[in-house]
Simulated assay, not measured.
Amino acid sequence: MAPTPLFPYDLLQAERERHAAYLALSTLSPVENTALRRRLLQLSARVWWHPFWGTRNGRASAARMELQRSVRAAEQGRPA
């Protein structure tokens, strides 16, 4: 995936990992998911508190949704 100019690489990577953990969590039984739930919480916190959100571009109201949209589009092979 080519880096999106709007978002820093580490933020994109954390969002990709968070999305993958969320999808994996949806397929596991409740007994198997404790470690994955913990990982999902860690990644969610990393994305939520990333320093990018304090920048001018990060303060845009649609920036968080655009991050999610661009990661999902890249995973499906569509242009971001």
Rank of each mutant, 00 (worst) to 15 (best):
L43P: 13
Y22K: 12
L40M: 08
A20T: 04
G58A: 06
R38Q: 12
L43C: 12
L40S: 05
T34Q: 11
Q13H: 11
G58P: 10
V47S: 09
A62G: 10
A62E: 14
A21E: 04
L28S: 05
R46F: 07
D10S: 15
D10Y: 09
L23W: 12
D10E: 14
L41G: 07
E17F: 14
L23S: 05
N33F: 08
S44L: 13
D10V: 04
S26I: 03
G58F: 00
L43Q: 01
T34R: 13
A24W: 02
V47W: 09
N57Q: 09
L41E: 07
R59E: 13
E15D: 03
L25F: 13
A24Q: 04
A20E: 07
H19F: 09
A20R: 07
T55L: 02
R16K: 13
T55K: 10
L36E: 01
R38P: 02
E15P: 03
D10T: 09
T27H: 11
W49K: 13
R16I: 14
T27L: 11
L40K: 03
S29E: 14
W49D: 08
L11D: 03
S29H: 08
G54S: 11
H19G: 04
A14L: 03
Y22E: 10
V47A: 12
G58T: 11
H50K: 14
N57A: 03
Q13W: 12
A60Q: 15
A60K: 15
R38I: 13
S44V: 12
G58M: 00
L25V: 10
A20F: 14
E15I: 06
V31Y: 00
T34N: 11
A62I: 06
S26E: 10
A21Y: 12
A14K: 08
L12H: 03
R38Y: 13
H50Y: 15
R39T: 09
W53M: 06
D10G: 02
S61P: 11
E32Q: 03
P30M: 09
P30G: 10
Q13C: 06
L41F: 00
S29A: 15
E32Y: 06
T34S: 10
R16C: 10
V47D: 03
A62F: 07
R37V: 12
A14Q: 01
H50P: 15
T55S: 11
R16D: 11
A35S: 06
R59V: 06
R59F: 04
S44H: 14
A20N: 02
L12P: 06
W48S: 12
T55Y: 04
A62C: 04
R18D: 02
L12G: 00
T34P: 02
E15N: 08
N57R: 08
Q13M: 07
N33S: 15
R16W: 14
R18V: 06
S26P: 05
L25P: 02
T27F: 08
W53V: 02
Q42C: 08
F52M: 05
L23V: 06
T27C: 10
A35I: 07
S29V: 14
T34K: 13
S61L: 01
R46G: 01
L40C: 05
A21M: 14
T34E: 15
A60N: 15
W48E: 07
V31S: 01
